[in-house]
């Protein structure tokens, strides 16, 4: 495994960028996705439309195009690196899918929970935060888990815009060493180092919540 040893620091740098982009995008898309999910279940027609348009736009355009849009167009106005452009695109793209998962979770909670809370004097926001969302997330966990794993794999989009991630570094190592097969095996294993513990943790969470229910 001399290829691995020789390029260890390069792989590690790629791994670090992939991990970082994944964490930023995960937190960001969870927050954004939840906001747009809530907008879609409010009584306000305007909020519902905005939420809906957002989800439809980012869910139905290839991630690569959103990434290039930020890297080529937006970066002209607001200076940003490929890493930043890619991470923003990944966040927006994933948040549309998360909004759908969270919205489905909210809709699965019986209407009586919201009515009980509102009749009890809570505002819509309080009822959402304290009563509806905690129950909705429980329901949405398997589907959110899928989105998070997809997100980590989709972060390879950064390679297209010089994002210094695993895939980007892998491409360089492969080009220099001519050993594409070994290089991409190593890259694949590095992705597993993130995605396997993530899958395991989500399964664990699912079992734990099932027991409590």
């Amino acid at each position: 495994m001399s290829l691995f040893e020789q390029n260890f620091s390069v792989f590690l740098q790629g791994f670090g960028h992939t991990l970082l982009a994944s964490i930023f995008a995960l937190v960001g898309s969870l927050i954004l996705g939840t906001i747009f999910a809530i907008m879609q279940v409010t009584n306000s027609r305007t909020a519902r439309s905005i939420g809906n348009i957002y989800v439809q736009v980012f869910r139905n355009i290839p991630l690569l195009i959103i990434t290039l849009f930020f890297y080529l167009a937006v970066a002209k106005v607001i200076k940003m690196t490929g890493f930043t452009a890619g991470t923003i695109a990944l966040t927006l793209y994933t948040s549309a899918f998360i909004a759908e998962s969270v919205r489905a979770g909210i809709l699965s909670i019986e209407a009586g929970q919201m009515e009980g809370a509102r009749a009890n004097g809570l505002t819509f926001g309080q009822a959402m935060r304290v009563i509806i969302l905690p129950q909705a997330f429980k329901v949405a966990i398997p589907s959110l888990g899928n989105q998070f794993i997809n997100l980590v794999k989709n972060s390879s989009i950064l390679a297209f815009v010089g994002g210094l991630d695993l895939m980007y570094q892998g491409n360089i190592v492969a080009a220099n060493s001519f050993d594409t097969f070994t290089t991409y095996i190593i890259i694949g294993l590095f992705y597993l180092v993130i995605t396997l513990p993530l899958s395991y943790y989500i399964q664990h969470l699912e079992h734990k919540l099932k027991k409590n229910a």
Binding site: G112, A117, I131
Partner: peptide, 24 residues
């Protein structure tokens, strides 16, 4: 309500204490 509409994610005590805490 007919179907109670207790908060399913809260204990009995928390069901009673929640609104007085948040609203009052």
């Amino acid at each position: 309500f007919q179907h109670f509409n207790l908060y399913n994610n809260k204990t009995v005590l928390e069901n009673i204490m929640l609104a007085p805490r948040l609203v009052l």
